[in-house]
């Protein structure tokens, strides 16, 4: 069960992630997009999911029982190769429905001082 003291807290990574053209090309290739000049709209998940899991690994959430319920992106500008993205994650809401924990985590990806993408993941921890 999530530690209730963590709701509303923001955790910021200590290391940024450098986006390579190769990582964009690899992601785009899976959906059949050749030679994109910027990352596809959902590319941010390849950074935010891993980063938010690291940031929240001691939160009490049982990651082995997590199911992805919902996802939202706000893209201020597309991610491009060369971006150096720092992730900060906030547990916005937490509720328990029929024993399942439903947690909404917001992750902001900044490149320098610019906010590039905000993503919200709703995760369901199955009872």
């Amino acid at each position: 069960m999530l530690d209730p003291d963590l709701i509303g807290r923001t955790f910021t990574g200590d290391k940024s992630v450098k986006v390579s053209q190769e990582s964009i090309t690899k992601f785009a290739a899976v959906i059949g997009e050749p030679n994109l000049d910027c990352a596809p709209p959902t590319f941010a998940i390849s950074i935010s999911l891993d980063q938010s899991q690291k940031l929240l690994q001691d939160s009490g959430l049982d990651w082995t029982r997590v199911v992805h319920g919902e996802q939202k992106f706000e893209i201020l500008r597309p991610i491009v190769a060369g971006d150096d993205l720092l992730c900060s994650s906030t547990i916005e809401t937490h509720r328990v429905v029929a024993g399942n924990e439903i947690v909404s985590v917001r992750s902001d990806l900044h490149s320098g001082s610019d906010l590039v993408v905000s993503t919200w993941s709703t995760l369901v921890v199955r009872a």
Binding site: P40, P41, Q71, K72, F73, E74, R77, T122
Partner: peptide, 11 residues
């Protein structure tokens, strides 16, 4: 490409 500003879905 690059035109998407918001995108959301439930699984």
């Amino acid at each position: 490409s690059g035109s998407v500003k918001e995108f959301s879905a439930k699984f």
